[in-house]
Amino acid sequence: MSTPDIPRLLPWTGQDGKPCYLLTDRDDSPLSRRAGQVEALQLRMAAGLLEHARVLIDDPAVDARQLRFLSAQLSTALQDVLRVAQSRGARSADDDVPSDLGF
C-alpha cells in the first residue's frame, strides 16, 4: 500500500471544529465508505432543505423567527456542501474547485 498524495477531507469536523482528514490510498476502506455515505446524506439533506426554503419564502404568513431559523439551517447545509465540494475537488484534482473555501 502506497502513501496517498492528497489526504481526503472528511465531511465532519473534530470536536474543536477543525477539519478531519483521512490518509489512505484505498477508496474502499471502511472509513472512506462511511465518509461517502455521510457526504451523500448531507447533499440529500441540503436539497430537501432548499425545497423547504422555497416554500417558506413564498409563504406571506412566515414570520421573521421562522426565516432566521431557516437561514441558520441553510448556512449549516451550505457549509456541509462546500466541504463535500472541496473534498471531491481535491480527490479529482479539479483545478476549478478552490482548495480553501474559507471555512
Rank of each mutant, 00 (worst) to 15 (best):
L9D: 01
D25Q: 08
V84W: 09
S29E: 12
T24L: 06
S2F: 04
F103G: 15
L50A: 13
S71R: 15
R91K: 11
A85K: 08
A64C: 03
S29K: 06
Y21R: 13
L10M: 13
G36E: 12
A35Y: 03
P11E: 08
F69L: 07
T13K: 12
R54M: 11
D27G: 10
L41T: 08
M45Q: 15
S32W: 10
A64L: 11
D63A: 05
S75Q: 14
L31C: 05
I57M: 11
A40N: 09
R88G: 01
G48Q: 11
A61F: 05
V55C: 01
M1V: 09
D25A: 14
G89Y: 09
Q37N: 11
A85D: 09
P60K: 05
R54L: 12
L50K: 11
P7S: 07
V38E: 12
P11H: 12
T13M: 05
L101G: 09
P30M: 05
Q42T: 01
Y21M: 07
L74D: 04
D28G: 06
G89K: 11
L74K: 03
R44W: 05
P60T: 05
Q66L: 02
L31R: 11
L101S: 06
D16P: 00
R91H: 13
E51M: 02
A61P: 00
H52C: 03
V62D: 01
H52D: 14
L31D: 14
Q15S: 10
T24V: 04
W12Q: 01
G48C: 03
D80V: 00
V62R: 10
